[in-house]
Amino acid sequence: MSKVTTTRRGLLRTGAGASLLVAAPSIVRAQSAAWPNKPITIVVNFPAGGLTDGIARAFGQSVSQATGQQVLIDNKPGASGNIGAALVARAPADGYTFLHSVSSTLIQNRVMFKTLGFDPDKDFTIVSGTSSGVLPVVVHKSLPAEVKDLKSFVEYAKKNKVNFGSWAMGSSAHIFAQTLNEKYGLTMEVVTYKGEAPMWQDMGAGQLQAAMGSPQAMNALIVKGEVRGIAAPSKVRARVFPDVPTSREQGFDDDAFTVSGWLALAAPAATPKDIVKRMSDLWVAAADSEPGKKMMDSFALVEKPMPHEEVMADYERLKTVLIPRIVALGMKPE
């Protein structure tokens, strides 16, 4: 776990910077126009190996190629993404530190934790949003072959102990599993991890009976036959499991069974608007770059990233949908 130390020198430096902004706005404009003129750091608040990390690395490579500046990926997992997010919230708003996260860090976490260490609405502006694609629900091979869809899974879970993996508190996987518990009288234990990679390790070891996540992150388990898909919690079927129906196709019509959310590239709220716009354009364009296309294809993603204004509008929409859903499920903040 990373520890951020605020020093007197750092505070003085911050104060001096603030004075400079007031005294010489022309200098700020010049610096902004020259952006970027040094390496950019993207903090990923989940471990390496998952979708959030993979997209950050591939798109970051594209930004580096387009700007000629190095893009550094710094993984800061922990507390369902809160540790990395808090780190970026306190970073200088100069366009050289960004957060790559999942939308649940900025939306669901506010009602899942008593203290975040940051204010999602006041401390960040969202630069771009990349669809997380279809995140299949899978079960471990140890479950009977009869467990092949959501209905049979619910029947199995009524009679057997089930640990359901979630990559973060309040994530789409957490909401999905908890909604199954509430609607069908199940007692599944939702096991929360610091990202997908450790979750899939436990699934491979048979410590989880079910989980939900990105196809690429679980690919090794698919290839080995360790897991099988039972539902696509989305509007379309998963490319890796084309014969597995969506939740709605299976009659599970509650909105909680159709995932809404995206990967968020965010910056400290005071980051100059022109830098936010330029980074947004670079991030959207990255989906069409060679590294971006390769990563998008490996995760079976087809939707292009949303630019700044569009993702900010969807952010407001998702808050009105997801926050009441968590409250209704009775999830208690930690």
Rank of each mutant, 00 (worst) to 15 (best):
S171E: 12
T187F: 00
A177P: 07
A220H: 09
I230W: 10
K183I: 06
N219E: 13
K194E: 07
G229I: 05
I230A: 08
A220G: 12
L186M: 05
E226V: 01
Q178D: 14
K224W: 01
T187R: 00
Y184G: 06
Q207L: 08
M203K: 10
G165P: 04
A173M: 13
W167R: 00
G204V: 02
V191G: 06
M199N: 03
M203E: 11
M169A: 15
G225C: 02
G170R: 11
V162D: 07
M188C: 09
V162N: 06
Y184V: 06
I175S: 14
V191I: 14
S214R: 11
V223R: 13
T187E: 10
Q216E: 14
F176G: 08
S171W: 14
A217H: 12
E226M: 00
A197Y: 11
E226G: 00
I222N: 14
F176I: 12
F164E: 01
M199S: 04
A211Y: 10
V162T: 03
W167G: 02
K159D: 14
M218G: 08
G195Y: 03
Q178A: 09
A220S: 14
L180F: 08
H174T: 15
A210Y: 08
A177S: 13
W200M: 04
V191N: 08
Q201W: 01
G225E: 13
G225A: 06
M203N: 10
E189Y: 01
G204M: 04
K194R: 06
G165M: 00
A211D: 08
E182D: 15
N160T: 09
N181C: 07
P215S: 04
A173T: 12
I175Y: 15
E182L: 11
N181Q: 05
A217T: 13
A177I: 09
N163A: 05
L221H: 10
E189I: 00
G206W: 02
G206T: 05
K161P: 10
V223L: 13
Y193L: 05
A205G: 09
S172M: 14
R228P: 07
T192Y: 10
N181D: 08
Q207F: 02
P215L: 02
S171M: 11
Q201T: 03
S172E: 14
A220K: 12
N181E: 05
M203Q: 11
A210R: 05
S166F: 06
N219R: 14
K183T: 11
T192C: 09
E196L: 06
